[in-house]
Design a protein around this nucleic acid. Structure first.
Lengths: 195, 195
DNA sequence: AGGCCGCCTTAACCTGGGTTAAGCCCAGGT
DNA sequence: ACCTGGGCTTAACCCAGGTTAAGGCGGCCT
């Protein structure tokens, strides 16, 4: 087994025989990415995804008017890919970009088809992955409905302490749905209040 | 088969043998709800869900400070239930309320366990349901990130034309994440511009 | 009919975040 | 050591939306 740590991450989601994981490893390909390099670019077919071995990535949606907003940050052990577009068989409208030099274990979505027909554990995993993605988005929805930008910021750091120092402030702003100017204001407001 | 129309709705999500659907029907119980009646109330165990036969429902989250925000509207053929809490085995933090007199086909989540072990189509359906819920929330996230309240309103009516005249304006506001006062302003602004 | 209630509107005022633009700080490159 | 550029901060001004409060308009009940 070449990636025991990832195997642990995965089995925490759904039980998976080691033998099946070994099969998956043979389908995967390790990929190194420089800082700022794109794992996926908008327009690409959304037929591949990766598991982060090393580094932090951001999923960016570039809107029609050219503004970018950030859908998620992903670090070690997490999935990267244009999940929504993959489910719908559409080309990616999302860029996945490395914020630091990183390494990814990359899969071709089609290759997993064969695993899935071979053993039911993969369907189970796919379900868990969908459910987990849902829960994350649900939480985010609630934050937008009930919280101010300042409260969202506070909660962001509570929930993503491991990102501290690894993501630029402007990206945090784009994740919260505000501008970097507004975020800077909020931060200095909090600094003053803390004295 | 007592509910052929629901069967169609469901098979559009994932193929399902009619024989399996018949088994499910025996587990279900029809329930009538008056206007304003709650299918689920906060604090209830989130172990039941329903399929809407008739009526429009709203899923309401009541925050700690007593403000209510609306997570979704659900009409004929759609699922109602505290899906997130069910996945996590938590009590419901959501109320599901009838906006009109309605009828629901209600299931006990545990009862489906037996169906699931009997035929793989149910696991497949569960996966599709999770994926669909995810896609809905993803779309909503994007709207909060990229659109103004006015644009969100416009898109709301594009995507939910069947709700026209069936949901009070204050609830639309709570769905969009603004107050009813702000929504009223937006509507009258648009009215003026349209002349 | 009269009165009440639920829902929507309007207005006045306040605040948080957007926009634009200038400046600062620091790391990297030459 | 100097420049450069990227990322952050600050300030001034504007506008969307929140808050509070006062009606308005049906529909429904007795």
């Amino acid at each position: 087994m070449r990636y025991p740590k990832l195997f642990e991450h995965i089995t925490a989601l759904a039980p998976l025989p080691a033998s099946e994981w070994l099969k998956a490893e043979t389908l995967a390909r390790e990929q190194a990415l420089d800082k700022r390099a794109l794992f996926l670019r908008p327009g690409d077919a959304a037929d591949r995804f990766g598991l982060v071995l090393q580094g932090v990535f951001r999923a960016v949606r570039v809107s029609a008017r050219g503004e970018e907003s950030i859908k998620a940050f992903r670090a070690e052990g997490e999935f990267i890919g244009a999940y929504a577009e993959m489910l719908q068989g559409q080309p990616s409208m999302t860029a996945i970009e490395a914020l630091e030099p990183g390494r990814v274990l990359a899969f071709q979505a089609n290759d997993l088809q064969s695993l899935e027909t071979g053993h039911p554990c993969w369907a189970q995993l796919a379900r868990r992955v969908a459910e987990r993605h849902y829960l994350l988005k649900e939480r985010r929805e609630q934050e937008f409905l009930d919280l101010s930008a300042e409260e969202r910021l506070e909660r962001f750091w509570q929930e993503h302490p491991h990102l501290h120092g690894r993501v630029p402030q402007r990206d945090v702003a784009a994740y919260l749905g505000i501008t970097e100017v507004a975020l800077s204001r909020i931060v200095s407001r909090r600094r003053k209040r803390a004295e």
